Simulated assay, not measured.
Amino acid sequence: MGSVWETSKQLLVLQCLKTKVFEQCVLPVITYGTETWSLTMGLIRRLRVTQRAMERAMLRVSLRDQIRNEEIRRRVRVTDIAQRVAKLNWQWAGHIARRTDGRWGLKVLEWRPRTGKRIAGQPPTMWTDDIRRVAGSRCRQAAQDRVLWNSLQKTYVQQWTSIG
């Protein structure tokens, strides 16, 4: 049995249907739970490599064909996985910051562990570090204003989509 993206003599799957399946089924499965991850350049790079491999399979294009990634993305027309992950991360941060019911989620976000593995000379990467870099130290107040929060989302997503 072949891949989901392969075609056989009896079944010709149109590119628009492959794109729709990818957008509605595959992408949500890959990005499930990513809103709580600390984003790193290495993580974004690995997700993009996975997505590009799937896009090549959708087009039945090999690496040996030497077709640029931009050309493949233009043909397939799917959402960039880095953009989706960053958007989910930002939306979840806003949701947590707007909570006022005293649940532990907000306390966990503001908690700083005293120990932990880290890169030499750098503190451990925290989930809220990138969010605070874009929204400022008063990110909880910024999240209360949804119009402001959504405008800051574009900046946050852009910083992760411009990588590699």
Rank of each mutant, 00 (worst) to 15 (best):
A82L: 05
L109K: 10
D65P: 06
R146C: 03
R46V: 03
I81K: 06
R64W: 13
L39R: 06
K87I: 01
R140M: 15
V49C: 12
R56L: 07
I30D: 01
T31Q: 02
R114L: 15
I72Q: 09
R45F: 04
V108R: 12
G42T: 11
S38G: 05
S38A: 13
M54W: 09
L63A: 10
L88Q: 08
I30V: 15
R133W: 13
R138H: 14
N150P: 03
R112S: 13
Q83W: 07
L59R: 12
W92C: 11
R84E: 09
E70Q: 12
K107A: 11
G105Q: 12
T128D: 00
Q91L: 10
V85Y: 03
R68F: 08
E35F: 00
G42N: 12
D65T: 00
S62A: 12
V108I: 15
R146T: 15
V78M: 00
G116Y: 11
R64L: 15
R73Q: 11
G94F: 07
L106A: 11
G94T: 02
W104D: 12
Y32Q: 05
R133M: 13
T115L: 14
T155K: 08
T31K: 04
A97W: 01
Q153D: 01
T34H: 02
M41E: 14
A97T: 08
A82N: 03
D145N: 04
A120T: 08
R56V: 10
R73G: 04
V134E: 02
R73P: 02
M126Q: 13
R64F: 13
R98D: 01
T125V: 14
R60I: 09
V76E: 06
D129S: 14
Q141H: 13
A86P: 05
R48M: 08
K154H: 05
G33C: 02
V134S: 09
W104L: 15
P123C: 09
V108C: 12
A120G: 07
K154M: 09
I30L: 14
W127T: 03
D80T: 03
V85Q: 06
R133Q: 13
W37D: 02
R118A: 15
A143S: 03
E70T: 11
W90Y: 01
D145L: 04
Q141K: 08
D145M: 03
T40A: 06
K117A: 08
G105K: 12
D80M: 02
Q51L: 02
R45M: 10
R99C: 10
R140F: 12
E70P: 00
L39W: 07
Q91P: 00
K87S: 09
I67N: 09
T31R: 04
G42M: 09
V61F: 08
Q144K: 08
E55Y: 07
T40Y: 04
A82V: 05
R56H: 06
R84I: 00
R68P: 02
R74N: 10
R146H: 06
L88K: 01
V147N: 08
Q141P: 01
G116H: 12
D101C: 08
L148D: 04
C139L: 11
W37Q: 06
C139H: 11
M126I: 10
A97D: 07
L39F: 00
S38T: 11
R45V: 01
I44N: 01
N89M: 01
Q51N: 08
E71T: 14
R114M: 14
